[in-house]
Computed example of a mutant assay.
Amino acid sequence: MAVVPDHAKQGGSHLYRAMRDFVQSADDTLPGKFEITREGIVHDMMSPSGRHELTALRLRKRLERVMPEEIVAHTGEPDVENEPEGVMRRPDVMVIAEEDMDTEGSIDPRTLVAAIEIVSRSNPGNDWVGKVRDYPLLGIPVYAVFDPRTGEGAVFTDIHPTPDGPRYATRKDFVYGEDVTIGDWTISTDGLPRYQDESTAAADA
């Protein structure tokens, strides 16, 4: 992870636009994923693993089996962005009405039904700390975290105001194998892959 610090509010500033231009150009030339928070640029330096992407695929397919046809579980680009707040993120899975994707540029985060993240082995704090802070700020009503390191996760809901800004008031933890409710839909977490323990991988090599 690399962070370019800036503790002042960045929204609408020349600095924010410069960071956004850098992120958009770096996405095509450098490995990993770049996002912008109010503290600066966050870089997850490792490309997603196969098990990370398989988790996203299985979650997308399970959600789309139970959601109305007009709601999709989208993986990939574009980003969600709130320029006044100085935040640009790219959820692993966006639950969103298909018609709300019909836009130029970034997606308005307030149109998301939910955001889902699969925790990165290389930068877990980005999902468990940074996005728990940023997603209520962006107005995303439901945030679900799946952690293949531990086989656990949590769903955050109920945005409420605090002295430090909007925060989620409710957290429901789960373990792989249990059913989990994201928004109005409940899916199974059976069969979601786990990251292989590094010591086990070394022993097997």
Rank of each mutant, 00 (worst) to 15 (best):
G11A: 06
N82Y: 10
P166F: 00
A56K: 12
A18D: 08
K61C: 09
V113S: 03
I187S: 01
D164R: 09
D204Q: 13
P193T: 15
E85K: 13
R58Q: 13
T55Y: 05
R62G: 08
P148F: 08
A144L: 04
F156G: 00
L57D: 10
S188L: 05
R167Q: 04
R60C: 08
V3D: 02
D28Q: 13
E98A: 08
R38G: 01
Q10M: 10
D27Y: 11
R20T: 10
M46Q: 10
A203W: 14
R17A: 13
S122T: 15
V80L: 03
G11C: 05
I107P: 02
T111D: 00
D21H: 12
V145G: 02
M94N: 05
L54V: 15
Y176P: 02
P109N: 03
R90H: 03
P68K: 15
T170E: 09
I107V: 08
Y143E: 00
G32F: 13
T111Q: 01
T186I: 10
E81D: 13
D179C: 06
V129M: 00
P91S: 09
A115G: 04
A205C: 04
R90Q: 03
S199T: 13
K131E: 00
G165Y: 06
S199Q: 11
A2C: 02
D28R: 15
P136I: 01
L112N: 03
P161E: 09
L63S: 11
S120D: 05
L137A: 12
S47W: 07
E98W: 08
N123R: 07
G125Q: 09
T200K: 09
R171V: 02
P48L: 11
G151I: 11
D179Y: 10
R133E: 00
K61V: 15
R194V: 12
